[in-house]
Amino acid sequence: MSNFLNLLIAGLATGAIYAVVAIGFTLLWQTSQTINFAQGEFVMLPAFFMLAAMNLGLPFMLAVLVGIGLSLLVLGLLFKRVLVDPMLRHGVLPLAIATMALSIALKESVKELYSAEAHPFPSVVPAGNVDVLGVPVSMQSLGVLVIAVLAVVALNLLLTRTSVGHQMQATAQNPTVARIVGIPVERMILYTFLINAGLVALGSLLVTPIYLAKFSTGEILGQAAFIAAIVGGFNQVRGAVAGGLLLGVVDNLAAAYVSAQYRAAVPLFLLIVIILFRPQGLLGRVEERTV
């Protein structure tokens, strides 16, 4: 039982990180039809920004701020202006393939410029266990879960309670109409790219202490984010949250109860079943696009 509870909480913690990354992924899709195949690398990179800043002698907290700042600049602003904007008119597929190329470029750049090794990364949450209902539970898991949940709640408040949030939602639902009613659509799209950059930086900060900083970790994370987004529902924030949490739990339970070899197959089966039988996702709406 204590084992199960620990697995569950660890699963929710990983799932919360997946959710954070998946939300950004779906936001980009909703506002600009960008399927970002480099999303995993987007999570891998900020940790290296932070490590590089620490190597220059900055204290951890300051390095984190530098890392977030660089993420907003490179993964938010530059990504949109340099790659996405010129490619939008070409349609979904060329842009998706360009992001595949981007993922290679980011991975190999880190390998060449920094190192091919795995680097330890300091945790924002102290190690150790706390007692939950008499069961010792990893503090790190709980901390990650709490931070991720706070971030999602904050984002949700931003989207539902502020005027900018409403404008962003309108942009996501129908850019043409949004433009007609006078919403600065371009700026709203830029905001979603910046939010995505912020979310991946947060994801990086939370996941890297667990997975270590390595150029190749993005592959697993990116795939998890895709699966979470699709399972939950591609066009909704709460879908991505549900998908992320579900995937994290399934992933951790599969590791414990299914054969270790086919652990990785369980989320993929989940993905295929969802796509075939409920393609709009568990919580998603049916997307209506004209042929």
Binding site: W29, V92, A96, F226, I227, L271, I272
Partner: peptide, 24 residues
């Protein structure tokens, strides 16, 4: 067969999942 039901990015992800399953 999935291509008869879903298109574009969904199809991309089904085939992506198949690819990883085959590797496993």
């Amino acid at each position: 067969y999935p291509a008869l039901r879903v298109q574009h990015h969904y199809l991309a992800f089904v085939t992506l999942a198949f690819s990883t399953l085959a590797y496993l």
